[in-house]
Design a protein around this nucleic acid. Sequence first.
RNA 1: AGGCCCGUAGCUCAGUUGGUUAGAGCGCUUCCCUGACACGGAAGAGGUCGAUGGUUCGAGUCCAUUCGGGCCUACCA
Length: 912
Amino acid sequence: MAREIAKAYEPQQIEPRWAEFWVKEALFKADPSAPGPVFSIVIPPPNVTGSLHIGHMLNHTEIDILARWHRMRGYNTLYLPGMDHAGISTQRVVVRQLKEQGIDYRKLGREEFERRVWKWKEESGGTILRQMRQIGETCDWSRERFTLSPELSRVVREVFARLYEEGLIYRATQLVNWCPDCLTVLSDLEVVHEERQGNLWHIKYPVVETKEFLTVATTRPETMLGDAAVAVHPEDERYKHLVGKKAWLPLMNREIPIIADEMVDREFGTGAVKVTPAHDPNDFALGKRHKLAEIDVMTDDAQMNANADTYAGLGRFEARKKIVEDLKAQGLLEKITEHTSAIGLCERSKTVVEPRISTQWFCKMKDLAAPAIKAVEAYEPGKENAILVIPENRRTEYLNWMNNIRDWTISRQLWWGHRIPAWYCKENQHITVARETPLKCATCGSANLEQDSDVLDTWFSSALWPFSTLGWPEKTADYKKYYPTSLLITAYDILFFWVARMIMMGIHFTGQVPFRTVYLHSLVRTGSGEKMSKSKGTGLDPVALNQQYGTDAMRFCLASMAAPGTDIVLSEDKLTSARNFANKIWNAARFLFVNLDKFEQGGTKLEELAGPEVRAKAPYAVGGRIPLVDAWLFARLATTIEMVNEALDTYRFHEAAQAVYQFFWGDFCDWYIEWVKPELQSADRERATVAWKNLFAAFDAALRLLHPLMPFLTEELWHQVPQAKGAKSIALGKFPVAEARWKNADALHDVAQIQEVVTALRSIRAELRVDAKKKVAAEFSTSDRSIANLIQANREALERLAVLSELRIVPKERFDAQSGALRSTATFDARVTYSETVDAGAEKTRLKKEIKGLQKAIISKEKQLGDETFRSRAPEKIIKGLEATLAQQKTEQDKLLKRLGDLDGGSQAAGT
RNA sequence: AGGCCCGUAGCUCAGUUGGUUAGAGCGCUUCCCUGACACGGAAGAGGUCGAUGGUUCGAGUCCAUUCGGGCCUACCA
């Protein structure tokens, strides 16, 4: 039966089918009662705010590669999918959508707004799930989780209540980061700093009952309306006499005290600083020390409020302008200088954050951090309840941050999220924190309760993800089997936001680390090095690219660039090369099946050549000997398997990709297939059968080896090869094992030798411009008996690979080194006899260059070897190696020099 | 202010404990549309590893300084 195989790989025709198949068959449903070592991994839940971007693609590719690889090696594997409700981001998206429809979300009311967000969540979350299925992720879809689901919300309440009971959560009125655009408090981490060119305004404050002025310098003149004092350093001779006096606050017509505090930096500005406790963190602390008034002069959306007197109603930046003008008019503006400072922006809205006094919920971090620091610090291989952080420098970063950790603002003035489980009694103001909605106040019994209107920071629930998703606080079968999870893979930019907090919460609540290893991968950047951003239009769309190049190509491309520690710059060029690789494999398969059709006409069935039991015993021998090239291929396969295992074991995805690429393209396609082509068609039925068996066995193993990197293509091709009864998917197949009997150093060496000869001969051909199809005669000579035998034994293949009519092996003394083009190495000489004359000039240039290179290497080695200190200190192995190479290089150089001399002689002869 | 990372072929990047003429992909040059593949084959050209100084028998690989680029943390108005 003739097989129909498209000439080029068309991922669009194949991927959707397998993506659907994997989900429909529920192949990756985890079974906690199944045997085997456990590999469990929870997804970093994507935000339900839109669709997957390239960063997710990288993250999911790495996770899925490792999940598939473990599963194929017999691990009881769980890859748990899910999504994050992403409070502030999602709320912003929906608020914007409503605004576009002319709707003010506040007018909608909380309940209706929440309903709209849930609707959006269904849509957007659906998109993400669809995409994840499209790209073939081997998740256990039956265990999908959502941070705001009723189940996980219960866990959040439990955790909140426990922390509150333990005194680790408290409510306090403090100066916090406030976003006037999002209208909520932010944690320190949600404030991003940006260096901006600004000014330092020097403002003269008249000192009461004197004719003096005290000049203060400020970057934010508008806050002066809330000034409560002017502070100078107690030791500052310039101002000592003013301490205890009062300053007249311009524009506001108020008196404020002049105080002394060591916090003041005498070097900065004028050495006198205006103190605005309600609008600056330093001033807030200072205000507390000196019991100053906290005068808030702004509204929640950063307009000046009634305390700002005549400036009320102006935006803070308008007010700044106006105030500067007014000061100037009154002659109180001494000067304006340029000043660059890092200003805080809201991570989401990029609005300038306004420090503001506000009552919020906080989580005490020191006690939670201590064991989380220890778990990372104390890590060593094999140690229980400790965490390995990779790469190493992220570990240091983590420890630094954790050692300087500050309390975490966990409340948010949002409507989308976990509402804080705290109720205020309207009778006696008592706060009741409870797991279930309380009916009455815990102290006075009043039923007049009102729940806190705030929600929790999204990361509060994300921090629980590794155990909340597995059923904690119940000791479920999943929890018992899959917690702690084996590994966390995420991008390094959420190390503090998420990873650190998971470690703290995990240890605190379960007594165990949430994951044994955390691998932090790089970010995908644009060509110009920026983070990809959809809003800036600099992001590449993974769905469109997957469509165009194939998901396999995308995965392979990302993997091949995912070297730990370096950010990835993705380009379409690289995707093209990955797609070409997929096509190469496709065509190798095409070659197999097209030729198999011919072979089967001889009566042998595919099953007999490629059935699973047949493959298991490969490589096969002909007449008691495994053909050299087959032995070589299996040896190379074994090496490659070891390289891939080693690479994946250490998160070196790029090395795994490179090893497979080199094997499949270089070894399997370029050399092996070319070598065995005639064997496959051999009239000798035994030889042909063996060739086919070995070919299929190697091919099938190579497919399994490649599968974690390119799941779709390999699944498709794997189904073309006969598989065991009931075997449903390559994804459930066995990852190839580097069998001891495949290893064969001699075969590796011998084929490398032959490859060198073939390349030398091809090189001569190219130089002589021999037509690619034209067979020419060649001579070969060596003084090494074993090489001569090797060449003799493989002459047929060699002749074919180098397109020769005949390869004569001649004794050294009869080798004609005078005419024709030749190549010499330390161990052999080869030449092609061809009527075309050699371009002596080009040949000499080449020889000279080669000689020069050798000369340099020889000199440096001779120098080293002649050095007594080197000989006495360098390891024996290095010295021996150096000596051997030196001898070789000398031999080779001698040959080349002789050849050059001959050519010179020849040209002189021709010249005279 | 403190910390981290990067600077290797035209481009994008590998190069694990210092050791023998520094690798890959893309691009480039020449030849070839040969019955798996032009998304291909064959053969080539091309870096002395940002700079300087040091440690060492030996450094892209360790140390110091320096220049250039990036990132993170940080309450100097």
